[in-house]
């Protein structure tokens, strides 16, 4: 019995470690691939999160604050592993332009129900903004991870 228990403990630890490793790989690989797909834009930073929805109405993912500077064209790109690309959404918003009603930008157009891999944002006001990466409503019955990349496209031309 004691031997069986020890084997069981080892098995659980092994599973835990492999899951953790898979998550880490997901981050590293997806970030790198995503960061190198931004064409000529310069990579500035990334936002990565694990996603898991246990209940249908549960909010998933994470939000981050980010300072954006006036006069700059930024690119926000979203990458998720194979099979999850159309389940995840990246949103740019602030206090006056809430995430769910009037965000500045999103990789998912609720009106046309279409996804885009990235969008560009011409910032005309230096301030703190928010980025969120979440499962879309009704999606997310499996654990996933996703990465958002912020890159610098150039100075905006007036």
């Amino acid at each position: 019995m004691k031997r069986l228990f020890i084997i069981l403990v080892f098995a659980i630890v092994a599973i835990a470690m492999s899951t953790s490793k898979a998550d880490a790989q997901c981050k590293q690989q997806v970030v790198y691939q995503c960061a190198t797909q931004t064409e000529k834009a310069i990579y500035l930073r990334d936002f990565n999160t694990k996603l898991k929805r246990d209940a249908a109405d549960e909010e998933t993912g994470m939000k981050w604050t980010v300072v954006l500077n006036k006069g700059t064209q930024y690119r926000f790109s979203l990458c998720a592993p194979e099979g999850f690309q159309d389940q995840v959404v990246l949103t740019l918003y602030d206090g006056e332009h809430p995430e769910n009603s009037k965000p500045w930008g999103s990789t998912y157009d609720k009106t046309t129900k279409s996804d885009r891999k990235s969008f560009d944002f011409i910032c005309n006001k230096t301030a703190m903004y928010y980025i969120s990466i979440r499962f879309k409503a009704g999606e997310g019955n499996k654990k996933a991870c996703a990465v958002g990349i912020l890159s610098f496209v150039g100075k905006s031309t007036k």
Binding site: K50, T60, K63, G95, E99, T126, M128, S132
Partner: peptide
Amino acid sequence: GGCESNSDDDIKFLPQD
């Protein structure tokens, strides 16, 4: 450990611009 979730209720907007 990393399954962090932020519901809308949890979001406290920081002083903006």
